[in-house]
Design a protein around this nucleic acid. Sequence first.
DNA 1: CTGTTAGCGCGTTCAT
DNA 2: ATGAACGCGCTAACAG
Lengths: 336, 336
Amino acid sequence: MAREGARSKDSAKPGIKEVAAVAGVSPTTVSRVLNNRGYISQETRDKVHAAMKRINYTPNDIARAMLNGRLNLIGMIVPYVSSPFHAQAVQAVERTLAENGFKMLLCNSANRPDLERSYIDMLRRNMVDGVIVNSLNIGAEAYAEMGLSLVGIDCDLGETSVQIASDSYGIGELATRRLIDDGCSRILCLRNNSRMRMPANKRTDAYHDVVEQAGLPALVREVEFVKSDDEKSAVVAKILDENPDIDGIFAGDDTMAAICLNVMKRRGLSAPDDIKVVGADGARRTMTFMPDLTTVRQDIDRIGELAAQSIIALVNGEKPESNTKLPVELIEGKTA
Amino acid sequence: MAREGARSKDSAKPGIKEVAAVAGVSPTTVSRVLNNRGYISQETRDKVHAAMKRINYTPNDIARAMLNGRLNLIGMIVPYVSSPFHAQAVQAVERTLAENGFKMLLCNSANRPDLERSYIDMLRRNMVDGVIVNSLNIGAEAYAEMGLSLVGIDCDLGETSVQIASDSYGIGELATRRLIDDGCSRILCLRNNSRMRMPANKRTDAYHDVVEQAGLPALVREVEFVKSDDEKSAVVAKILDENPDIDGIFAGDDTMAAICLNVMKRRGLSAPDDIKVVGADGARRTMTFMPDLTTVRQDIDRIGELAAQSIIALVNGEKPESNTKLPVELIEGKTA
DNA sequence: CTGTTAGCGCGTTCAT
DNA sequence: ATGAACGCGCTAACAG
């Protein structure tokens, strides 16, 4: 279709063949030098290395992958990298992958099932060796069918996959208890609207259990993760209007906590005096911007690191721990 | 080396060949159906499509790339995706690339020259068609030598590359003027320690010009971008100790602004009463967490979108605008 | 120690 | 309208 696909004359990237020609040996010998396979005389080795430098040769991982079926490439699917949790997780994953000679294809699904499906297709076409999923808006079977190594961060991708997550129940438990200990009697729990079986949903389960044990009424509302800040604010404002007796909020995550605090401020309400607010996640950047936020922190770096190590192990045919739950920690701020 | 590289028996991913066998045609015909090339009878076309579905065939972009020399893959290098500016930029780039059938290989350089070099090597080996650079810690020649399409976000990568940036001088100008208009007479300017020729340095140039025009003394200090929040805080604390007369701070970016505000609060100083603070960047998440921050906003989404469009144009042999400067906007908050 | 042959999955001639 | 042969860059067999 496009004419420019063809490499111009001799400006094409040199290959093993050109190196061989310059060095006066066969392509196979060059390959051997490249991979340190078999016996090669030091003399030949030097000639080849010199030739590679002379013509500025770079090996082609793509061609290699066609032979051995492995590209050392991992796909990672998140809803939005710009969300603090995902940004930090992606960074940790990429760093760990790179340290082990792997590369990352990044996908922002925007929590849209259609995009997620097309990303799955894209990843298959590009021979990724495994996928790390942090955004599940379709059936897990869609991933299982890929026949690839799978790691879910806060997602259950099925029997053969590895799952990495924080102690989600603990998050909801710590946050809710903190509010109750603080004297709250009408606690709002905000959760996103995912219908998928994600461990994160346990935050809400814990909330239910804890308020029930305390003999308090449950008040759970959903906020769509995909909406804009303004839309989320409107939802929160409406909830506060309809429930003027709310004196505590478990916001579900720190971004929602910030939005709640913003809505409150606009109506002259402050935390912790009028309403106490507890978030969740505690990403590094979030804490820089909101050092006073009371929240439950996840070890996001560790999550990313483990996810990367797990996918590498799976790709290598090893059997990593299949269901890791990381401890969480209540961070005392000034909003509760 | 590894035995598991070999595909097991027939569980291997089906290729064009298997499809051909099932459909009872030649591989060439399957290829034609796949690419809508030449004339094919509707009957054959249907048979092929049926066969593809039957054996769950997925085309191999990698093999294709070896033929036409194009993988539609773009590398993107940032210091840290977890930084708000970069997170938002990466997200915008990826979204735009995906909409045009391109994929992104993400690289976190941590501003380390050695990592940046190894990423360059990695990208070459993986046949990327172009690179978007948002982290320049080595000579631009290292990129030019790749012989690939290049787009620099706030980086000058040389003659043949495209450069996308905000009006950096305008950022420094708006911020500094805002502080002077507010009555500040001893304004601190924080900048990162990059020695590279980045447009972002013009923020400091503008600061110099504006304070000079106002007959005020200049006070510029460097803070290493790679340091931890605690280390940055210590640096800021030291600067404040040594210059107790500071009444205004142009923080360079919003993260530094947040750190300054945190240090101030710890010493009982508040903005804008004691010291006025103006940041820069105005990433979406930052504004959610710090809605009261006075800052100069860049259109980060637009930057990412333009960067993606430009690299695609370059890869396609077109000539996009080579040096785009995007307007910036002062956001009135309550810290100045 | 080194070269030759074959082929990974695919698209593109050139025939038929 | 369809098929056979060749090659992309590289490596695993199998000679020598």
